[in-house]
């Protein structure tokens, strides 16, 4: 009896998320939080630190987290598909192509795998919010007149320390982090390789469309497989280009070593593969 109940609930759970799949969807958001993300792509080199601005858009039921630049690129490209005469003159750039949707207890991540000449491949995977087992600590601190409390988490092979405030009762935060009884103002991993800090929170009115490229519909996968494939492509980018027909006449070994070094210097991802 119990198993039937469990099974029924499980399939209901899956059905819920299947409805939330790869078709084009539009959302209207009324709140926006902008986070400054500081990261160190090379774990051995403090000089490699870079920063980028990310945004968390929400309405009452769903939130979307992506790079500010990606939203600008998308809105320009979306406009181009609607109005064929416009040219894209400017091209903001980001290496973060993911879009993270959090709804109810489900986190859906849409991401892109750069895999060589034939253009990126689009994927998505789903995680459950119960994966985020927060441990609340007693420490408090005041950041910009907001009373924040500390919480800790083990996620994706990193230890994270978050500061959330119940003054803003939005149970959300940057990247995939959510589920605390208040908005996460700041979160970073124990080595401070990845750091998110809230810089702005305001009321806005924005309409966002995702998955609007008809020829690039995302394919369902799992997080484990996605990260493993990402590692495979970046580590072996030279081999893959050779398979496409790149012919290296001389100095191939040196190119290989450069490629290996490049990978080493950019392997400190936010979620470390298993």
């Amino acid at each position: 009896m119990k198993t039937i109940l469990m099974f029924g609930l499980l399939s209901g759970f899956l059905f819920n998320i299947a409805a939330f799949a790869q078709e084009q969807q539009s959302f209207n958001f009324d709140k926006q939080a902008i986070y400054k993300m500081t990261y160190q792509p090379d774990s051995t080199d403090k000089g490699s630190i870079k920063e980028e601005y990310m945004e968390l858009l929400f309405n009452d039921s769903i939130s979307l987290f992506e790079s500010v630049n990606k939203r600008i690129i998308d809105s320009l490209e979306l406009q181009e598909t609607l109005n064929e005469n416009s040219d894209i003159m400017s091209n903001p750039y980001t290496i973060f192509h993911y879009q993270i949707l959090k709804q109810n207890s489900v986190v859906t991540t849409f991401d892109v795998l750069e895999n060589g000449f034939k253009g990126p491949n689009h994927f998505y995977y789903i995680e459950d919010k119960t994966a985020f087992q927060w441990e609340i600590k007693e420490d408090t601190v005041t950041i910009n007149k907001l009373l924040c409390q500390k919480a800790e988490l083990n996620f994706a092979n990193r230890k994270w320390v978050a500061w959330f405030t119940t003054d803003i009762p939005i149970s959300d935060g940057p990247y995939k982090f959510s589920g605390l009884p208040g908005l996460i103002i700041k979160i970073n991993d124990s080595n401070n390789f990845w750091n998110f800090e809230l810089t702005r929170l305001e009321i806005i009115s924005k309409s966002i469309t995702i998955n609007f490229k008809k020829d690039k519909q995302p394919v369902l996968t799992t997080k484990k497989e996605f990260l493993a494939n990402k590692k495979y492509f970046t580590e072996n980018s030279l081999q893959i280009r050779e398979m496409y027909g790149l012919r290296i006449m001389a100095g191939r070994a040196e190119m290989q070593r450069n490629s290996n070094e490049y990978f080493r210097k950019h392997s400190n991802w936010i979620e470390l593969p298993f």
Partner: peptide, 15 residues
């Protein structure tokens, strides 16, 4: 919702 403003965000410029 109180607007929170911490620090400046760079404006994207063309060219």
């Amino acid at each position: 919702l109180e607007v929170v403003n911490i620090g400046n965000i760079p404006i994207f410029k063309k060219q």
